[in-house]
């Protein structure tokens, strides 16, 4: 078989194939439910109900979407330039560490100044974490996929050291946990009494900002040019190395905001299980959004809904909650295939 480009894909193809990918994901969910001895329709219903069935559930989904928007944006920005940043997990923790460092009394500022200062410092830390791998890439040609992946493990060990040593909460009953942030460093809730915090609004703002950078600025143009064809970009005078570094700083900073918003908005302190893989899920979020920053918001809410819904379904129907991880990975793989087939036709010899 071989692939032939289609000059003008029909509307049916462009809508039908991604819909088929989603249908396949739903089919996979039904099969997994059957395997677990549960009723597939009831299971799907419980997932949807758990994700958006009540005000509490919907807000919980938006809460869970918040870090995913940040990591999804981080991945989308980087992948657009073909910078394979798989290290959002490490950058997230860097942001979280700085948030705890500055939010536990080190900076005597009023909240209106303290919170932005912490956010900026967190971004700087995340950017710094990605700077190493990207300089290795631009200077020595070391593949950044492996280095960013390995940095995830190094960072987690570093955080583990901090939480058992210098950053350990003296009142933590021996648990590896940081002291709690001061009240002035915490992001307030958007609606009093409900868990949704201002981190979500910040995530939306970040998506808008990335959209502006990508579509309205020279840097955005350069990032796209480098991603499409680095050689051609270099030939036309774009400083490819410097664009890569700028992209990395932006990407690392965005991922770090996920750590900032989880600590300052939700958890209030740092533990080793702050992120159940938000960095990796960010890749799924970004790809489902076709690397479009505004799309990232929607796909993050979708992915978060699957996770929140599966959690609540699991308690009721007994299907293991890992069904959510299988479904989001399936959605990713079927979607990239569907998108390829919208522009390419399969010819059998």
């Amino acid at each position: 078989m071989r692939l032939e480009p289609i000059a003008n894909p029909s509307a049916l193809r462009r809508v039908g194939l991604p819909a088929a990918a989603l249908a396949l994901t739903v089919l996979a969910a039904s099969l997994l439910a059957l395997l677990a001895g549960a009723d597939p329709f009831a299971t799907l219903g419980l997932i949807v109900k758990g994700a958006v069935g009540s005000r509490f559930a919907a807000l919980e989904t938006l809460n869970r979407a918040t870090p995913l928007i940040f990591t999804g944006l981080a991945v989308a920005v980087a992948f657009r330039a073909r910078l394979w940043n798989i290290g959002a997990e490490a950058q997230l923790y860097a942001g979280a560490v700085v948030t705890v460092l500055l939010g536990t009394g080190a900076l005597p500022l009023p909240p209106a100044l303290l919170i932005p200062a912490i956010a900026l410092a967190a971004m700087a830390a995340g950017a710094l974490v990605l700077l190493g791998p990207v300089l290795l890439k631009t200077r020595l040609g070391v593949d950044e996929v492996v280095t960013t992946l390995l940095f995830n493990f190094i960072m987690l060990l570093f955080v583990s050291y901090l939480l058992e040593g210098p950053m350990k909460d003296p009142l933590g009953m021996g648990w590896p946990k940081s002291p709690a942030l001061e009240a002035s460093a915490r992001l307030p809730r958007i609606v009093t009494g409900l868990r949704l915090h201002w981190g979500f609004a910040l995530a939306i703002l970040a998506a808008l900002a990335v959209w502006v950078v990508q579509t309205r600025t020279t840097l955005g143009y350069e990032i796209r040019a480098v991603g499409l064809n680095a050689e051609a970009a270099r030939f036309s005078g774009i400083p490819v190395g410097r664009v890569m570094v700028k992209t990395a700083l932006l990407s690392g900073g965005l991922a770090a905001l996920a750590g900032f918003s989880e600590v300052a908005g939700l958890k209030g302190s740092l533990t080793l299980d702050l992120s159940p893989g938000f960095g990796y899920a960010g890749i799924i979020v970004a790809m489902l959004a076709l690397l479009n920053p505004l799309g990232v918001v929607l796909s993050a809410i979708f992915v978060a809904g699957v996770f929140v819904g599966a959690d609540s379904m699991s308690r009721a129907a007994g299907v293991p909650t890992y069904i959510a991880d299988i479904l989001t990975a399936t959605a990713l793989l079927t979607m990239v295939l569907a998108l390829r087939l919208t522009t390419m036709r399969v010819r059998w010899r």
Binding site: L32, Y280, I284, D325, I326, A329, L332, L333
Partner: peptide, 14 residues
Amino acid sequence: GLGVTLLATATAAF
């Protein structure tokens, strides 16, 4: 590749 890693890891856990 990353999708396969996520899928295989999740399948094992499930």
